[in-house]
Design a protein around this nucleic acid. Sequence first.
DNA 1: AGATATCACTTGCATTCTGCAAGTAGTTAC
DNA 2: GTAACTACTTGCAGAATGCAAGTGATATCT
Lengths: 153, 153
Amino acid sequence: MVENAKPKHRSGCPVSISLEVFGDRWSLLIIRDLMVRGYRTFKEFEHSGEGIATNILAHRLKKLRAAGIIETEYDLTDRRKLKYRLTPKGIALAPVLLEILIWGARHEQTGAPCRMIVHMEANREAVLAEVRRRWQERDPRPFLPPFTSRARV
Amino acid sequence: MVENAKPKHRSGCPVSISLEVFGDRWSLLIIRDLMVRGYRTFKEFEHSGEGIATNILAHRLKKLRAAGIIETEYDLTDRRKLKYRLTPKGIALAPVLLEILIWGARHEQTGAPCRMIVHMEANREAVLAEVRRRWQERDPRPFLPPFTSRARV
DNA sequence: AGATATCACTTGCATTCTGCAAGTAGTTAC
DNA sequence: GTAACTACTTGCAGAATGCAAGTGATATCT
């Protein structure tokens, strides 16, 4: 038996393989929109304020679906709408997203208010539990705002 | 006073801003090499097993330095060698990297042994404390192996 | 001392990816 | 029946990436 197949991955390191799945400028933003903003449709992702091009968005959605991170179903009341949802594998990215959020808020100039970050840092498990609960119960209420401004409260 | 300056960022969201800094296929791998493998030089990053091209590596090192995540100093005994080191802002990425590693090991086929991941998940704080200690004390011993194989122990 | 090797890049070029504008197919509303 | 809406696709220009080769400053060997 020979190992002729072209290697699927750069290496066997979990970090490297993870980055091959979501290591780009956009994928984690789509996951964030699904996870904490309650966005569900193509149009909502498109207008989430980051300015993603529609071809890139379509490509990322396809890739995330192929990776088993999101799944889709048509809206029962309006069959034009395709609703996206995180899979268990997708919601499992919550700790990754939380740590990225905390790091960014602590070390870069962002629009997130300091006291919110302090609270999240001190209550990581509670924050994650709430995010998971909303996913489980399909609670569509946004958990975090879009942070459009550069306010520092 | 007018807001004429071109916006530096896509949005004020900490996740978005973080991804502008390290949201690509390579940056976090360099940070991983510095953080848990004890790699310090250009050559070591180049041969870390992922196959990064030297021009990309040079570009990423420059960008990470500009972002304040790594810093450099010349080796005192061999002035050809430029040694890289994480800054406090860089070592603060440890939780991000740990969560990415755990997610990848749990949800993708990687070379990381299961029991190691179980241990890391159950002892996150101890793992982070050890990584931070090695950084603080400039302890160059690798904390994690390269996971080159696809072994499942 | 001179030749060779090492280290950290840089350069050139082909390929791939990204960003923008415009267009399309399948619903739904009027 | 027509217009609007939703989720894309297509075409094209420019940027980023990957690969091979080259460069300049040290260091080591003979």
